[in-house]
Write a protein that binds this DNA or RNA. Structure first.
Lengths: 217, 217
DNA sequence: TAGATTGTTAATCGATTAACAATC
DNA sequence: TAGATTGTTAATCGATTAACAATC
C-alpha cells in the first residue's frame, strides 16, 4: 500500500521465503520463529525480520509467525491472486517444455495461449494450450487481457517479438532468449533467465576449486 | 592466481560482460572504453573498472580496452578453456530442450551423456548425445572425468540423484528442479535456476504498476 | 607532447547484522 | 506473570560511486 521503494535484494528473496513456507505448510508445520526459519534457510534471523517488516508486522511477539498466514501474505505481496495471465511466444523445445511442465497456477498465472509461425504446430494444442499463428498476436490481445509475454523465440526474432508484445500492451516480459531486449521507454518490466550466465557463474566457482589453469601442452 | 575473495555480485556480473564483449566483437568493434561500455550496459564506468581490476589491469591508459583480448581474459577467468564436462540427469521435456538447444561449447563445456530411467529413451541419442540408464551413472563416472551434473529430474528424485552425483565426484550441480538440494558437507557448488522465483519476482514488479489490489467482489 | 582513460584510493551509499525495548 | 520473540533502531559491514594521480 505504502509505496516505499523495496530493494531488488529483498524482492529477490521473497519467492524463496514463499517456497520454504509452502514446504513447511506441506509438512504440517503451523508456526515458526525467525530463528528457526533462519536455520533452515541459511540466512540470518535478523534479515528475515527486516525483510518482512518492509511490508508489515506479520508476526506476534513471543510467538513467531503463523506459517500459513505468512505464506498467504507473501503470496499477496508477490501478486499471486491478482489473476495474472500470460502467453508463450515460441513453441520450440524450451517453450514446449515450459508449457508442459511449469506450474503456472501455483504462481498465480493463467497461461492463455501460445504463438508460433511453424505451420506444423499452429492450430494444435500443447497440454491443452492452443497454439495460434504469431500474425494473430495483436488481435488476441485486443480480446484478452495479457499481463506477461514469455519469450522463447529464436534469438533473431527476440527484439521484434518483444516490441510487438510491448505495443500490444504487456506489463512484463519473461525473457528466455539469450538476447538482452531493450526499449527506449522503460515502461515494461523485463525479467530474464539467462542459462549461460548461470552456467558460467558455476564454471567460475568450480574453476576456483581446481586451482591455477594448467598450460595446455 | 591470487586467491583474494571475489564477491558474488562481481561473479554474477562477469558473464554479462562476457556476453556483451562477444556481441561487440561480432559487430567488429576492436576497442572500447569503460565509459562507452557503461553506456551500452547501463552500469557505471567506475563499476566496470573496479570489477575488472579484481583480476588484473586489462586496459591501457588513454586507450581503453581491446574488445577481443578482454573477452578472452574474462572467458579465462570464467573457466572457459578448462575443458569442463557435464552430464544431464533426466531427459524429460526440459532436459531434452536443453540438450538440443543450449550452446554448451560456447560456454566451454562438453556434454558427454544423458541419463534417465525410462526404457523408451535409454539407449537412444538426443542430438547426438547418448542416453544411458541411471543405474550406470557411477560406472560412467569411473571412466570419464565429469565436472558438472545438470539436474532436470522430477522433484521427488532430485535429492537422491544429487547425492549420487556428489558421491560420484562432480564439482558442481546445475539444478533446474524446484527442489533446494543440500548437503551436510558443502564440498560441491550448486547453481540453481528457479523458474518460479524468476516469475514471482516479475509478478511482484508488474503488481507494483497495477496499484493496490482490488477486492474480488 | 597533450589528451584520454585507466587503475586505485577515498567517500558515499545501502544493505546486513546486532541489539534491545516493546509486547504478545 | 515470566519467557519468548517480534519490530525497530543503531552499528557494522561491504559494495558502489566519485575523484584523481599515474601513464599510455
Amino acid at each position: 500500500m505504502d509505496n516505499k521503494e523495496i530493494s531488488q535484494a529483498v524482492i529477490a528473496r521473497l519467492p524463496r521465503y514463499f517456497r520454504y513456507l509452502g514446504e513447511l505448510k506441506n509438512d504440517g508445520i503451523e508456526r515458526i520463529s525467525s530463528q528457526e526459519l533462519s536455520d533452515i534457510m541459511k540466512v540470518t534471523a535478523s534479515q528475515i525480520r527486516q525483510d518482512l517488516n518492509n511490508f508489515g508486522g506479520f508476526g506476534q511477539q513471543g510467538y513467531g509467525y503463523k506459517v500459513d498466514s505468512l505464506k498467504e501474505e507473501i503470496g499477496g505481496i508477490l501478486g499471486i491472486g491478482r489473476g495474472h495471465t500470460l502467453v508463450v511466444l515460441g513453441t520450440g523445445n524450451l517453450g514446449r517444455a515450459i508449457i508442459k511442465n511449469f506450474r503456472f497456477s501455483g504462481n498465480g498465472f493463467r497461461l492463455l495461449a501460445a504463438f508460433d509461425v511453424n505451420p506444423a504446430v499452429v492450430g494444435t494444442e500443447i497440454a491443452g494450450v492452443p497454439v495460434y499463428h504469431a500474425d494473430g498476436l495483436e488481435e488476441f490481445f485486443s480480446a484478452h487481457r495479457v499481463d506477461v509475454g514469455l519469450l522463447t523465440v529464436p534469438i533473431a526474432a527476440a527484439q521484434e517479438m518483444g516490441d510487438r508484445l510491448v505495443n500490444a500492451g504487456v506489463k512484463g516480459i519473461w525473457n528466455f532468449t539469450n538476447y538482452e531486449i531493450t526499449w527506449a521507454s522503460r515502461e515494461v518490466v523485463v525479467e530474464a533467465v539467462h542459462f549461460s550466465d548461470s552456467l558460467l557463474a558455476l564454471s567460475y566457482m568450480i574453476s576456483q576449486r581446481e586451482g591455477p589453469e594448467e598450460e595446455l601442452t
